[in-house]
């Protein structure tokens, strides 16, 4: 009996593992290999050793893309989490038509981010300036997306618009794990409003808080669709996200080898961030 089980398991595992290795591990290894060459994506190539990596650290365009992507990820995460927390509290409290509201607020998340980006592109280029013109707000009179220092805000708004839904849902399920007795005990002690939130609610949903942070930052670091739809990396190359740069310069620009090195660094960064966050949050959870 036991052998039959073992054999079946092996027969199942081997092909699936092979599939995984073929389409995940091997490309990863090939990517690392290419990062040491000057491959253009076609034709012949030479081994160049660490030249790509050295170039990476002196290339202003790459540096700019990391700065932009991190700035976007951090700010959007904060904005999204704050707003989502508020929304979750609101959607969890005593209001009518709860499921209608939840359904409506989740809507942005299921829409394709490319099309959402195109819609907001039109909004930022034509509608917002028209409104600003009418109401007289000078700062918004010209398109947000044509200003190198403000274009990232446009991207952030679109990312947040879609992400708030998911994060709110996570917080709601977090809030629902708090048993009613906790609140009742708090009521007896006279805890209300902010105090109630800070000492009762928040500590109990910290696990969900950390999930959200990890997911949010990781997701926003990989932003691509919105860049394609809104700015194509401009203006003045101020909104080139890391993924977009790798695709644009690596696949269309013929800098396969160089951007493979960029991708390797990116991979290491993502792993480092996820690992660090998990460590941080498990320590926090223990403390509580």
């Amino acid at each position: 009996m036991k052998d039959e089980k073992k054999r079946t398991y092996l027969l199942i595992t081997i092909p699936i593992l092979a599939l995984f290795i073929c389409f995940n591990t091997i490309p990863l290894l090939r990517g690392v290999y290419y990062s040491f060459t000057n491959f253009r994506g076609f034709g012949s190539y030479d081994w160049v050793g660490l030249r790509n990596y050295i170039d990476l650290f002196t290339d202003a365009r790459v540096g700019k893309s990391y700065w932009f992507t991190f700035k976007l990820a951090v700010v959007t995460t904060v904005v999204v989490n704050v707003i989502s927390m508020l929304m979750a509290l609101a959607l969890n409290s005593r209001i009518p038509a709860k499921s209608f509201f939840r359904g409506a607020y989740f809507l942005p998340n299921i829409l394709g981010s490319l099309v959402v980006g195109y819609i907001f592109n039109y909004f930022f280029t034509y509608i917002l300036p028209a409104f600003a013109q009418m109401v007289g707000i000078d700062a918004l009179k010209s398109s947000l997306l044509s200003n190198p220092s403000a274009a990232w805000i446009g991207v952030m708004i679109v990312c947040a618009w879609q992400a708030i839904a998911m994060t709110t849902i996570i917080y709601i399920s977090g809030l629902q794990t708090i048993p009613a007795d906790v609140y009742e005990a708090g009521d007896i002690d006279g805890a209300t409003g902010w105090k109630k939130f800070r000492y009762l609610t928040f500590p109990l949903i910290v696990p969900f808080f950390s999930i959200n942070m990890v997911l949010s930052i990781k997701n926003f670091l990989m932003v691509f669709d919105q860049i394609v739809a809104l700015t194509k990396g401009g203006p003045a190359q101020s909104t080139e996200s890391i993924s977009y740069l790798i695709y644009n310069n690596g696949m269309s620009g013929g800098q396969f080898g160089f951007q493979s090195a960029n991708a390797v660094i990116f991979f290491i960064v993502i792993v480092a961030i996820s690992a660090a966050q998990m460590k941080l949050s498990s320590r926090k959870e223990e403390q509580l």
Partner: peptide
């Protein structure tokens, strides 16, 4: 101009700055 040099994007930056 090699396409990876993105001269078009550099020109746009120049015209802005």
């Amino acid at each position: 101009y090699p396409s990876e040099m993105a001269v078009d994007a550099q020109l746009q930056t120049y015209l802005i700055q």
